[in-house]
């Protein structure tokens, strides 16, 4: 499997999102460098998913810009984001239950202009890579949760993204599955030559694979740095690591 386009830098600049009176993102700025694994952490309600939804163009920020390389993402319609090489998974599974695993993954490459059999071959290749090939003709409905999360990951990889966004991929997985996932994300990251933006509560996984961590609290960035920087930051410990409830989503 090879990446289609080269990764580009994601620049989030002064992005603001409000829901009624709630400020979900308060002029947030950060970057994901090309080929970086960047983690976005913070307590529940901090605004992590909201940021994903802004990049996916599902939410409209009230202010700010989001650029991917030279592209102004906020000038693009939502369905064009995949064509720019940005794909994602959802915090709560968002598969198409009536379709087979293979069809789900083929939809992941929907934006690519290519022949149907090429799309199928490519989807099968991704399924093979994630040890899901034997489930290709199964309907997504009825498969175990952990498997479905892998299928969703496969769907996000089918288009060979330049940047992959994962929203709590480890949530609901067992400890050994989390370790496997961390390893998988790390190897896919180099294999496919892509950037990764990771939202995750599982700190062990975050610390193990991230090159950079951005910490959010109430829609604002309260810290940013390498895993070593972050684990020693008193504000982070207070706002986030200090609450044992939030330490592990699982």
């Amino acid at each position: 499997m090879t990446g289609a386009g080269a990764p580009a830098r994601l620049t989030v600049d002064e992005v603001r999102v409000e829901f009624g009176g709630i400020v979900a993102l308060a002029d947030l700025s950060f970057t994901v460098e090309e080929r970086q694994i960047c983690a976005l952490i913070g307590p529940n309600g901090a605004g992590k998913t909201t940021l994903f939804n802004c990049v996916s163009r599902l939410y409209e920020p009230t202010a700010g810009t989001i650029r991917f390389g030279d592209t102004d993402l906020l000038g693009e319609p939502a369905h064009r984001i995949a064509a720019h090489g940005i794909t994602r998974t959802f915090q709560n599974l968002a598969l198409f239950p009536a379709l087979t695993v293979l069809e789900n993954v083929m939809l992941g490459a929907h934006a690519k202009r290519e022949r149907e059999h090429a799309r199928r071959a490519q989807a099968l290749e991704v399924l093979e890579r994630l040890d899901l090939a034997h489930l290709a003709s199964h309907h997504a409905a009825g498969l175990p949760y952990g498997t479905l999360k892998r299928v969703e990951l496969a769907r996000a990889l089918a288009a060979h993204p330049r940047m992959l966004m994962l929203d709590e991929p480890a949530a609901g997985l067992t400890h050994s599955e989390v370790d496997e996932l961390a390893e998988l994300v790390r190897t896919l990251h180099t294999e496919l030559d892509m950037s990764v933006l990771l939202v995750e509560h599982h700190m062990q996984m975050v610390m193990a694979i991230s090159e950079k961590i951005v910490v959010l609290d109430f829609g604002s960035k309260i810290a940013e740095g390498t895993p070593t920087d972050i684990s020693g930051d008193p504000r982070v410990i207070e706002a986030y690591l200090g609450h044992p409830d939030d330490r592990e989503g699982a």
Binding site: L58, I81, R88, F90, A94, F96, L99, L107, H110
Partner: peptide, 10 residues
């Protein structure tokens, strides 16, 4: 089945 997911795949 899922408008948001459909949009994000293109």
């Amino acid at each position: 089945d899922h408008e948001a997911a459909a949009t994000t795949v293109g």
